[in-house]
């Protein structure tokens, strides 16, 4: 079965399977993180200058503990087909299971530019205002129209002494927002890297002095980053290209790392992301087999009722027109051949003396004849006429 086409071969929206992007990524195992103070923890905002790579946590005595890794790092030594393509990964959820008691404040960040800038996805704390300058998340989601990083309750301790941090992208999205139709939500779920910032240990009491002075460590056993290769609904799987980058196995006449554009000849209508209802496949231009290139014309597309905007370029085989659907001047349609036939257009072959010109009727092939001349190519005298010696009046009335 082809996930991108139905039984009848019609295109339909398709997405790669849900995978754990953290699976197989190289890590340092359990990291021992020095305790962090309270200072500087309100700095989170768009592109707040957080480091591109996780700092050396063993030396980061006064920095928050940071766990970061790339979902789409081309330099990663593994070539894991589950890791994300360069252009991004569509997040569904993130979960982090602790062996130790979980931190009471956690910030979850994402990058869309391979770690150059970071934006928050969510915060987890019992002290949202103090730690992150935010109010606790409303029970019914964001108050605004779009998704936003909310502050949720701190990670819950488990009976075995560990803890679990769980985040779904839906947690920060207003109810009813649809991924297919919301570019804002599509942007919200797209990430190339994830960073988890752990702050304020729980087990050392609440005094700042104690946290500042006493080393502390967390340990985590399992990180899951659930999501999909970002292919805009036009691929059901991702592959490795020759440079080792993940790219979508694009269908529906699309191409690009994330199937984000139409293939060169598939420009009869504008590119669109596929939805669950409509595949929005890129359509090949209709050139009757006489052209290899075409371009999109928005004006024609609008005039056609948003059906077709492709214009064929360099029509061959003596054809012409937007769809190479009629014959060039000096040629006419051979009714015995299909329009797609290489010889569908025949030369007029007008007689050099009997015809008044070289261009024939493009449908019938009839050349314009001089007086007294007849025939498709004007090569005979009409009944009642006979050939003269004058090339200007080749047929004259019979005496």
């Amino acid at each position: 079965a082809d996930p991108c086409h139905d039984e009848g071969g019609a295109p339909r929206g398709c997405v790669p399977g849900l995978v754990n992007a953290a699976l197989g990524r190289e890590g340092a195992g359990v990291q021992h993180v020095r305790a962090a103070g309270h200072a500087g923890l309100r700095r989170f905002g768009p592109a707040a200058g957080t480091p591109r790579r996780p700092p050396d946590l063993r030396r980061g005595h006064h920095k928050p503990g940071v766990l970061a890794f790339g979902l789409a790092d081309a330099s990663a030594p593994q070539r894991d087909p589950h890791s994300a393509p360069r252009q991004g990964f569509e997040l569904v959820f993130v979960s982090l299971r602790f062996c130790s008691a979980p931190p009471t404040s956690v910030a979850l960040l994402k990058s869309q530019d391979h770690g150059r800038s970071w934006t928050p996805l969510g915060f987890f704390s019992s002290r949202c205002g103090l730690d992150y300058g935010r109010v606790p998340a409303p029970a019914d989601g964001p108050a605004g129209l779009g998704p936003e990083a909310l502050c949720f309750p701190e990670p819950q301790a488990q009976p075995d002494g560990g803890g679990l941090l769980a985040f779904s992208v839906q947690d920060g999205s207003p109810p009813g927002l649809d991924l297919d139709s919301s570019p804002v939500l599509q942007d919200w779920v797209t990430a190339t890297d994830i960073q988890v910032v752990l702050t304020r240990p729980t087990m050392l009491g609440d005094t700042r002095d104690a946290m500042a002075m006493v080393p502390y460590s967390y340990s985590a056993t399992e990180l899951q980053v659930g999501g999909r290769c970002k292919c805009n609904g036009h691929a059901a799987r991702c592959l490795l290209d020759s440079q080792g980058h993940m790219i979508c196995d694009c269908r529906h006449g699309t191409e690009g790392p994330d199937c984000g554009r139409c293939k060169p000849f598939y420009c009869d209508r504008p590119w669109q992301r596929a939805t669950a209802r409509e595949a929005h496949a890129c359509l090949a231009c209709s050139c009757n087999g006489h052209a290899r290139r075409c371009r999109f014309n928005m004006e024609l597309y609008r005039l056609s009722g948003r059906r077709s905007g492709g214009v064929c370029l360099n029509c061959r085989h003596n054809t012409a027109g937007r769809h190479c659907h009629y014959c060039q001047e000096g040629f006419y349609r051979d009714p015995g051949r299909a329009l797609s036939d290489r010889r569908a257009c025949r030369a007029c072959d007008c007689h050099p003396v009997g015809a008044a010109g070289k261009t024939c009727n493009q449908t019938t092939g009839q050349c314009p004849c001089k007086d007294g001349v007849t025939g498709l190519t004007c090569n005979r005298c009409a009944p009642g006429f006979q050939q003269s010696r004058s090339p200007v009046a080749p047929c004259v009335k019979t005496p």
Partner: peptide, 23 residues
């Protein structure tokens, strides 16, 4: 009645040399 095709050899191109088609 099917008339014969025009015979190019019968034309006199003396005054119309510039119109004479290349053969």
């Amino acid at each position: 009645e099917v008339m014969p095709t025009l015979d190019m050899a019968l034309f006199d191109w003396t005054d119309y040399e510039d119109l004479k088609p290349e053969v």
